[in-house]
Each structure stands twice: as C-alpha cells, then as structure tokens.
Design a protein around this nucleic acid. Structure first.
Lengths: 327, 327
DNA sequence: ATGAAAGCGCTAACAG
DNA sequence: CTGTTAGCGCTTTCAT
C-alpha cells in the first residue's frame, strides 16, 4: 500500500504538498495539483487515517451507548445520529451494554484510550456517577434518559407533559379506571411519566389506586402480558392502560387479545415511543411519538460541537400524541 | 493526558519497558513492573490506541454493513458479532447503507483508509462487483446474504431446505392453496426460498399458480398488507401464505385481521426469521428460526481469523421450524 | 532484563 | 507556492 512519501516521490514534490492537495487543495497551484493527483491515481493511493488520527490526536469516532440493540426505540435515534455524524466526517461505534457494568466499563475505556472522541449515552441503566466523572474530562452528551442532578448536556422530551396528555386523552374518552404500566422507577423517565399520569388523574378527580400502578423491571413484552394478568385478576379491574413503552403496550394488547378482551371497547391502551411495530398490531396502537430521528441528529450535532470545544445547551423537543385504534 | 514517556520518566525506566509492562508483563522483573505500575497509577495514564494503531498498522475495528438498523432480523446477529468481537479485542462500527450506493461507497472507503481491519457485509443490496473487488485486497466475509458466484467466505443457512420444510408443514396440515409472499428476486435468498416453495408444491402435486406468488420490492409490513389485498382479490383465493420474512408475515396477518379472516382457520401464515416480534402478534407466528446470534458470532470469528491471515471456509448453519399459533 | 533508537503515516509550523 | 523538519504515542528490533 502506497504511502504519502511514495506519492510525493512519484509526483516529484514534497510530502507536505501532497498533504496539502489532500486537505486544502486551494493552496496548491493547479499544475502541481494535477501532478499529485496523477501520482495518487497511478499508485492507487489512499491516505491512512491511522497516521492522520495520531497526528491530529483525534479518531473522529463517536461512541453510542445503548442498553440493547433489539429495542426498536433506539433504531431511529441511531439513524439520526449516523446521518449527522457521517455528514460531519465522523463514524459511530455502536455499543450495547446489556445493562452490564463490566461491559459498560469496557466501552468507557475506549474514550480514555482516545479511540473515541466523544460519547452519546442513551443507556438509562448507565452508572451515573461514572458518567459524571468521565464527563469532567471527555465530551459526553445524553440522549433520551439523563441525569437530573448532573451537568451533562442532554436532549429529551417533556416526559411529564407527554404522559399527562396521553392520560388526559383517555379521560376525555370517558375512561375513569386507568392503570399505569410503568417501568422501573429508578429511571427518571419512569418517574416523570408517572407524575404526568398522577397529575391528569388528580386534575379530573379520578382515584389513583396503588393496585393499578404496575412496575415492570424489564422492558419486554412479556412484562406487558404479565401486567395485564395481574391487573385483570383484581376485583376492581381497570378499563384502560397507559403504558410507558410501546413494547409493554404491545404485550398488554396481546394478553387482552388472548383473554378475549376487546381493544378498545373493553380495554383502551396507550403506548409510548411510536416504534414502527406500534402500527403493525391489530388494532394499531395509540401512542406518544418521540421525535427520535431528530433526537439522534441533535445529539450528534451536540457532541460534535462539544468535541470542538464549543459550549452546548440541553434541548427539550416536542412530542405528539398519535391517536389510532386502540383508544 | 499522560504519555508513555512521562510514565517512563516517572518510573525511572525507558519507554520500552513501560510498553513491555503494558503488553507482555512477563518479560519484566517483578520489581520494575511494580515501579511502572505505580507510575501509571500516579499519572492516571491510559495508553493511546492511536499511537498503537499506527505502529501496528491496525485499527482493531470491524465494519458491519447492514441495509437498515430498523430491521430486527439484524439485531441478534449484531449481538453475536459484538460479543465475539469485544472478546477478541475488536470493536464494531455499525454502518447502515439504506441500500444507497453512495453511502456504501463512503463505508467502503473506511477500509481502504485503514480505519477498519475487515468488513462483515450483511447487506443483500450491496454492489457485488465492488465487494468482490475489495475482497481481493481486504478481509471481507458475508453474513446471511452472499454472492453465489463469488469467492467471499460466508455464513448462512440452507434457505431452500428451510422454505421447503415450511411449505411442507403447511401441506401436511392439509393446505393446498398456498401463496408465496416473496421479496425481490434479485436477492439470492429470495430465489432459494422460492425454489424450496416450488419443490414442496411439486412434490405433493400441488399447482404452482403464478397469481399466488407475490413479489414485494420492500421488506416492510405494508408490503405484507398489500400482498394480502392483492391475493384476496382473486377469484381463487389462497388459504395459506408462506412469507419469506416475518415482517411481511406480520403485515399479512394484520390485513387478515382487518378483513375478518381468522388465522389460522381461514388463512394459515408462516413467516421467516423468528424476529422477536413474531411472538408478539396474535396469534403468534409460525416461523423459521435462523440461528442469528450464532451467525453473528461465527461471522466475527471468521473475519478476525481472516484479518490474521488464516484461511477461512464458508459455513452453513442449521435452521428450525417453530410451529406456533398461526398454522 | 533493560535501554536506545528507528519509524509507523500523517500534518503543520517555519523558512524560503 | 513549496520544501524541510519535527513530532503525534506507540512497539520493536538490536544492542548491552
């Protein structure tokens, strides 16, 4: 494989000139430039990014941490990140933590070793203390889930308001017995969405029954099924469910189908996220759309600016209630 | 940030010794080693992978090319790739081509520029000619879809046999009017699965009707819906559908639900891939399971061996028909 | 067992 | 506009 030296020799110029042609072509005479271009072509030369990286002390690599790649919520965010990153000359390393601290630590080491220039963390299970520590030294932003006590810039939506609106939608439809299908309360988004739920219920003088708040420790569709089993085994059964995730909602929907409960007539269901599958169920799921692609591209823009040393501010984006057939 | 030189100075040794401690600790006296370890700790030193990469002419990065991250079929494969890669000291760059040749070319440039040590291509829409060219110079393996004329090592399943067995399963259930919901025939897997379908139909003396073979140009669930609309608008309607992808099958299922066709009583449906959502539908989908995690980890092992210069052979893995409620 | 020194491929400061 | 040159941080002979 040809190096910049061979190109220089072949073109009869210095390596500096070749480098100039490679980077800012303007500062080189037309004539020299064509000579160099010819040599590059003849030798089939491709500049090594390894040399460039070392010299520039950068990798132009972004680390994107997610708990699980199987969760489609992240797919579109990653789309947004990647499009923006590539446009800015960066590439992304997708890192799946599986909510495993050891795994997480391996990925953190990538930024300490300069293999990554920055981190976009989307992992709600991330070790917040470690992340804050790292953020003192390295460029880090959080997407979707963030640390309310921390100082790391983040992009998210107004979870409380979104939940409030979703529940209000059910109430306006005449629902009174509304269950909350939540995820683990150790997550900020879970607490915020629960607050929105409670706020709506209170505002319309509806009882908040402990038995109707189901906390699932995993964001899997079996948990949604299990929740419906539990909820429907009670004497006083809810007639509507607000789930903080489409995956949970789809599980709930499936269990309702199995039990012969008609959706929305017997049980109305609202999900959250508008993942692509929320449209594939029968009936299609009413859900809260997060601007996932946009969240991704904004996160990428933020982290790149942070890498460049600019100051960046957190962003709260708009959500939208998508009313479909399940309510 | 500390460099290896500062560590060396602080420990009162040469950089070579520090490097030895970092890499093969055995070749250093216990005493020197502790001195160096102390210095490393004191300075909070983290070796720069940039320097190491340049020196070793490697990046320890693997490029994984997929058409779309939103397709859950790839999720578990990526899981398998990542686990194996990380265990072997590699990291992956996930690259989504969107079946866009320009995008593809950007990613190809990453290996030419030494940013990646090898490529795992999972993109059926990849430019085969370009891929073959690159494979002459760089380590490349294909996963799932491959080029039958090419020489690139690949890991896949026996698509024809799998399709044959899926259709035979329908036939044994008494089905005679079986439609094929295929994807674009430009893909090898599509042709192979169609062959399996035809073989089963022929073997049991069932007619292969052109009208019952629907080719969709996109692997989206709307295409599955559209297929059912088309198929059911015919005078002679099929009573079973074999879809070459779960996504298509889920779309078909949804349209059946909408039309009040009972599954499996009125229409039996078989999918392909066993993506996680195939279990979330009502009824749950009968499908062909591909060993996706294994496909991923084997691909990763293959590409890493190829990078090391070993010879690697293609692998054909076992599939399994998962019989659930839709048949 | 350890150190000195060369060099991986590139960019940029400086000089001309 | 172009060339010379000094490194970026690391590994690895080759001596000692």
């Amino acid at each position: 494989m040809a190096t910049i030296h061979e190109v220089a020799r072949k073109a009869g110029v210095s390596v500096a000139t070749v480098s100039r042609v490679l980077n800012d072509r303007l500062k080189v005479t037309e004539k020299t430039r064509t000579k160099v271009d010819r040599a590059i072509e003849d030798l089939n030369y491709e500049p090594s990014v390894l040399g460039r990286n070392l010299r520039n002390s950068e990798s132009r690599l972004l680390l994107v941490m997610i708990p699980s790649i199987s969760n489609p919520f992240y797919s579109q965010i990653i789309n947004g990140i990647e499009d923006t990153a590539v446009r800015e000359g960066y590439n992304i390393m997708l890192c799946e933590t599986d909510s495993n601290p050891e795994r997480e630590e391996i990925y953190f080491s990538l930024i300490r070793n300069r293999l990554a220039d920055g981190i976009i963390s989307m992992d709600p299970t991330v070790n917040k203390k470690r992340l804050q520590e790292l953020a003192c030294t390295y460029p880090i932003v959080q997407c979707s889930e963030y640390d309310e006590d921390g100082t790391i810039p983040h992009v998210t939506i107004d979870n409380e308001l979104a939940a409030y609106q979703a529940v209000r939608h059910l109430i306006k439809l005449g629902q009174k017995k509304i269950a909350l299908l939540n995820s683990d309360e150790k997550f900020l988004y879970a607490r915020e969405r629960q607050q929105g739920y409670e706020q709506a219920m209170q505002e319309f003088d509806l009882p908040i029954k402990k038995e109707w708040i189901y906390s699932s420790n995993a964001l899997e569709f079996h948990s949604g099924q299990q929740a419906v089993r539990t909820l429907m085994s009670q004497a006083d059964k809810p007639t509507a469910i607000f789930a903080v995730s489409d995956i949970l909602a789809i599980g709930a929907l499936k269990e309702c189908n199995i039990r012969g409960l008609r959706v929305p007539q017997d049980v109305a269901i609202v999900g959250f996220d508008k993942i692509s599958f929320s449209n594939m169920t029968h009936p299609a799921l009413t859900t809260v759309a997060q601007p996932m692609y946009q969240m991704g591209s904004i996160s990428a823009g933020m982290i790149i600016r942070k890498i460049r040393g600019d100051n960046v501010e957190s962003v709260i984006l708009d959500h939208e209630l998508i009313i479909r057939e399940s309510t």
